[in-house]
Amino acid sequence: MNIVQSMNKYVYDGLVWDVLPNELDQEKKIMDKLFALKDKCFEHSSRLFALRMDFRLNHYTADNSPITHFHQQLIPALRKKYPKSLISYAWVREQVKSEAQHYHYVLIMNAHHVRYAPPLVDLMSQSWAKATGGTYWLPQNPWYLLGRNDADSQAGFMKRVSYLGKKRSKENTPAGVKCYETALRFPKRITGEIKPEKIAGSWAAGPELQTEESFSSIDKEPLKQSISLPKQLENYGLIPALPGKELSTNNLHLPRSLFWIWHRNAFRQQQKTLGISVEKYISDNRLQQKSATRHLKQRAFSPFWNEHIERYYCFYWPLGAPVKLYCELHGLKFSSARRYLVNFNAHKIKHKKSKQTMGYQL
């Protein structure tokens, strides 16, 4: 019994996972794609909602046009109903004794915006029927709620979805035709232009809201777009000119927390490129030893929160936009985001008259 259990394991990124296919039946390329897709989704959402379904056809097709037509129906419907959620999916093509192929499918979305399975089941089944005329099958306990720090929920889901990674029943796929695919798509960019010339100094350089076309799969890099901010910011005014004076402990023109956010970022960049120590950085920047040591040695934020911190303080905070509005626009949970973002009032900061701007990025 122990020997059988030991063969139903899969090692990914140094961790051992329980899976359904045994070692001889595991297709490594598919298994790696499934695990990578989960990790990529967690980079953009702390909670995920996943749904497993199977799709059947009435007639055989030598290509995967049924899936293509299915997505042409499904993706716009999901965009309309869940405009703030990422859309991620994986499918495999299989054929055993039946005349037509069938597809195993898993859909992953942002659990902050999607919490119930029935609406998704309706959308997916209707889209499949409209696109192909085929039928669907809903397995028992088809949906999962996953947490970024919840190992048990991830383990249960990956064991279930690992079924897609088996070698069996994929041998009949025609040569040159895909037998699997994974993809991750982000919400469309919210429109509402602010011209670059209205943005002071280095604030014009920063992260961008990503379009749906930015990611068609987990292997592609995001495309850089022009500066664009939501229309909801129109009531908050223009980005103010910030003081040209270099940051120092005597600079009272910035909120204290923002001051240390900048220094932590600058220190980590210099530490990575120059190997500079905390003590050397404190000495070079004439910072107070005790406070600076405590702030600079703080644990770094995750890439997910670093991106939101940079975006908020570069584009939203200077406009006076509150954290709560930022959370609504980006689908963040306010109770979590306020641990990383602070509502400073940029327009009440006393700025010195200067034609220069502070050349830094958070």
Rank of each mutant, 00 (worst) to 15 (best):
191 T>V: 11
207 P>N: 12
164 L>K: 05
136 Y>S: 13
23 E>I: 12
31 M>A: 15
62 A>Y: 11
107 L>E: 05
163 Y>D: 08
212 E>V: 13
13 D>H: 04
12 Y>R: 01
242 L>N: 08
57 L>E: 00
159 K>W: 12
265 N>R: 10
338 R>G: 03
79 R>D: 12
179 C>Y: 09
267 F>S: 10
40 K>V: 02
186 F>C: 07
176 G>I: 12
246 E>W: 10
87 I>T: 09
329 L>K: 05
246 E>S: 13
342 V>F: 13
296 L>C: 06
63 D>A: 08
227 I>E: 10
173 T>W: 00
110 N>T: 02
232 Q>M: 11
61 T>Q: 07
189 R>W: 06
45 S>I: 00
60 Y>V: 03
170 K>M: 11
270 Q>I: 01
70 F>S: 07
254 L>W: 15
63 D>R: 07
268 R>D: 05
356 Q>K: 14
74 L>K: 06
263 H>C: 06
97 K>L: 12
338 R>N: 12
133 G>S: 07
225 Q>I: 11
234 E>N: 15
227 I>G: 02
213 E>Y: 07
152 D>W: 02
239 I>V: 14
118 P>Y: 09
185 R>M: 15
167 K>M: 05
263 H>V: 04
162 S>V: 09
203 W>G: 01
18 D>T: 15
250 N>E: 08
47 R>C: 06
208 E>P: 00
164 L>N: 05
229 L>E: 09
24 L>M: 08
57 L>P: 01
94 E>Y: 11
340 Y>P: 03
18 D>E: 15
318 P>K: 02
186 F>K: 06
175 A>C: 03
144 Y>M: 04
44 H>G: 03
15 L>Q: 14
224 K>E: 15
240 P>L: 00
99 E>W: 07
114 V>R: 01
327 C>P: 07
58 N>R: 03
132 T>M: 01
134 G>F: 01
55 F>P: 00
336 S>W: 02
286 R>Q: 15
38 K>D: 12
346 A>R: 11
299 R>H: 07
50 A>R: 06
213 E>M: 09
162 S>E: 12
226 S>V: 08
153 S>W: 10
185 R>N: 06
149 N>W: 03
33 K>I: 02
105 Y>F: 15
75 I>M: 08
112 H>D: 14
66 P>Y: 02
151 A>N: 10
56 R>A: 09
6 S>M: 14
345 N>Y: 02
83 P>I: 03
310 E>F: 05
